Amino acid sequence: MDEMTIKLVAIDIDDTLLSSTGKILPSTLTSIRAALAQDVKIVLCSGRPLAGIRPFLNELGITGPEQYVIANGGGMIESVTGQVVAKHLINNADYRRLTAFAKARQLPFNVVDPDSEIITADHDIYWLIAVQAWENKAGILVREPDELPADFQIAKGVFVASSETLDNIEADVYREFGEYLYVVRAARQFLEVMNPNAGKGQALQDLAGKLGLQPDEVMAIGDEGNDVAMFKFAGTAVAMGNGTAEAKEHANFVTSSNNDDGIAEAFDKYVLD
């Protein structure tokens, strides 16, 4: 154990908390429940909305108004009971710009509103957007910006396409929006755009501040580029063995993969007495 005790562990969900078959390993369940029994806060951090995170909270036994999630890639900090602690949204004008940009390039695009609804202006819904909606227990609304209220705001926008398509378009998205919005590759097939005050790292810093915790009391575990901002804040940064080269480069420790008890290994090393 380090000199300072870990009091909060922020954990990415996909390919980190979950195995490649989308399950929580028994060793992960045991470790997280042991940490909760030591009064360590376990904060699930995901691009998913709260509705899509809730099944895992239930399985892990994370309950009550004093436990928190970082949802929508950092656009929302909420208690697991649904009380909003902080939200950083994208305004209506920028939502319209993003939608127009996607249409002009025939790029599949959807947004997530603060209530976890998935909305797209694409009448032919890209298959992966439908899968995301199903996984997150969300509906899909097909709406043009003009069909929504003039003050409609979004938690995030998501360009969804093959990894090759996003590789080709990513620089254009940065050029167009990167100066005033937060653009991050959340996974090979997802390029997310958020309020510049959002992002997992900023959200983790804000939540730690609210809870009176120092960075040395925080551990972050993840596998992707959008987890690096958490790594930069947390005193202890753990990359999964299955993680990207970028994630591993910014970690203090590379644990085993999400299929090989990587979470349990990290908890044994840093968290559990």
Rank of each mutant, 00 (worst) to 15 (best):
V142R: 09
P145M: 03
Y126L: 03
I118G: 02
R143W: 07
E117N: 13
I129C: 00
A121G: 10
A121E: 08
L141D: 13
D113F: 11
E135L: 14
V131Y: 06
Q106N: 14
N110V: 01
E144C: 05
Q106I: 01
I140S: 12
Y126V: 00
H123W: 07
K137F: 12
I129K: 01
D124Y: 14
E144L: 11
R105E: 04
A133Q: 01
E135G: 10
A133S: 10
F109K: 02
H123C: 02
R105D: 07
L128T: 01
Q106L: 03
I118K: 00
I129A: 02
T120C: 08
N110W: 01
V111E: 03
Q106D: 06
E144S: 10
V131K: 10
H123F: 11
P114M: 10
V131T: 07
K137P: 01
P114I: 14
P145Q: 11
V142K: 11
E117L: 06
E117M: 03
Q132V: 00
G139K: 14
T120G: 08
I140M: 15
F109W: 02
F109C: 00
A133G: 05
D124F: 11
I125C: 08
A104F: 04
V112C: 08
A130G: 10
K103F: 00
A133F: 02
G139N: 14
E144A: 11
L128Q: 08
E144H: 10
K103T: 03
H123V: 12
A130I: 02
P114N: 13
L128M: 12
R143G: 12
Q106V: 03
N110K: 01
D124H: 15
Y126R: 00
W134G: 07
V142A: 07
A130D: 13
Q132D: 07
V142L: 09
S116N: 13
Q132L: 06
V142N: 10
V142T: 15
L141W: 14
R105N: 08
E135V: 05
D113E: 11
A130S: 11
D115M: 11
P114T: 12
E135S: 05
N136L: 04
N136A: 10
S116F: 08
T120F: 04
V112F: 08
E144Q: 15
S116A: 15
I118E: 07
V131P: 04
L107T: 02
V111R: 05
I119K: 02
N110L: 01
I119V: 15
T120M: 08
E135Q: 13
E144T: 15
E117K: 01
I119S: 04
Q106H: 09
N110H: 12
Q132N: 07
E135K: 14
D113A: 13
L107V: 02
W127A: 15
P108Y: 04
